[in-house]
Design a protein around this nucleic acid. Structure first.
Ligand SMILES: [Mn+2]
Ligand SMILES: [Mn+2]
Ligand SMILES: [Mn+2]
Ligand SMILES: [Mn+2]
Lengths: 220, 220
DNA sequence: AAATATTTTTAGCTATATCTAAATAAATAT
DNA sequence: ATATTTATTTAGATATAGCTAAAAATATTT
């Protein structure tokens, strides 16, 4: 089965919205995610259904098939490998990689991806902490916890961000939060859920609940 | 002016056929080069004419404009930089890079190309010996001579290939001809133009006129 | 100069991917 | 149970990029 660039983008969006192929996804949700109109989505869902990468029941949303999941994970693998390349080799900042990776992920060449993976030393995570599926689509996911779900006095390490927008990433750069940082929850304000976080045993950070909810950590 | 992928491919083909924007190019020639039908070419020439990257006079072929030449050279620059990347960093063979570079050249990101150029140490030639235009479109071209135009006893160095097809490149690999090899013409058969070439002062190579015409050298 | 051959363009069709507006199905509220 | 609201699909456009077949322009031959 071979997909067009547009089809790959839709399938990836559906995969993300379906929480890794677990839940069904509505036409409107896909339209919002893809920044297109529901009418365009209906059309595309019919096509993806015909290609059997999704199961499409009119008016009742879609579910990804096994085949679809595999293809979506291949595209995600390519996207994340390219992001690693851009950051590690071409000195891109982590907030500059997304759009370019969005194009690079559609280059059709198994050899290219195999060699790129090897050249990057088989990275397991992208610059935003998201896991890179292997060539069979297997993802070794770590249990991750949003900072706002951690309790006072708990310690851990930042491993990923939920929001990868440039605005959010630049903000994290500015305040000195980064992937790999050791953290400890010093305080949690009940009123608004804002938090006080100790970073690397030396720097104290105040953040809104909204920010905390977009930083993912493993507990230690 | 921004071009679609198809438009970039056509413009690049027209640039090559026009010998670097010097001669005018016919519809049929473009069709042959692009492996499409003349009817499709007529359509595309109208579009490229509207965008003023070519000057199109119906029935009389096209000439590239200054703007078109600049855009074509940008695409060629990207194509060749990616080829260098694939060979130098990802261990592609020189006969494996063309198709992938044909896709990669259309990725839209000035930062990406600037960084790639720097990462590769500002290479001046691609794996086939073709010059890489700088970001302003300037090409520092070396005077090159096809082997079949060299005389007996003349020496030189292989600097490029005219034909970059996998078949030809694999043949050169097999017989041990490569870019950078020092050569000397030992014999030239008048009857069929075939030649005897000494490579690196140790290996003797027999080649048809056809092969010789596709190997480019500088004299020394 | 006329006939013929070649080249190029136009007309009309297909496929992808988008849109707006209208129709219809499903969900919710009265 | 009906009416209303919301979600989704369909119908009909537009734009890109290709095709075949027919028409028209140009080039070549007689
Ligand atoms: Mn994409
Ligand atoms: Mn990422
Ligand atoms: Mn190309
Ligand atoms: Mn090349």
């Amino acid at each position: 089965m071979t997909l067009t660039t547009a089809e790959e983008n839709y399938l990836k969006a559906i995969y993300h919205l379906s929480d890794g192929a677990t839940k069904s996804v509505s036409t409107n949700d896909v339209a919002a995610e893809m920044k297109t109109k529901p009418a365009s989505v209906s059309d595309m869902l019919r096509k993806l259904g015909d290609k059997e990468v999704i199961e499409y029941r009119k008016y009742y949303g879609v579910n990804i098939t096994e085949e679809g999941k595999k293809l979506a994970l291949q595209t995600i693998r390519k996207h994340r490998l390219w992001e690693v390349f851009l950051v590690e080799k071409l000195q891109f900042a982590w907030d500059e990689v997304h759009e370019v990776a969005e194009e690079l992920e559609h280059i059709q060449s198994p050899l290219l991806i195999q060699r790129l993976d090897s050249y990057l030393n088989f990275p397991k995570f992208d610059p935003h902490g998201d896991p890179i599926p292997d060539e069979y689509g297997d993802v070794r996911a770590r249990p991750r916890l949003a900072l706002n779900e951690m309790e006072v006095d708990q310690s851990g390490q930042i491993v990923a961000v939920k929001d990868s927008s440039a605005a959010f990433l630049k903000y994290l750069d500015k305040v000195g939060a980064y992937i790999g940082a050791r953290i400890k929850v010093l305080d949690k304000v009940e009123f608004d859920g804002s938090m006080e976080i100790l970073v690397d045993q030396k720097k104290t950070l105040f953040m809104s609940k909204d920010v905390a909810a977009n930083i993912l950590a493993i507990q230690s």
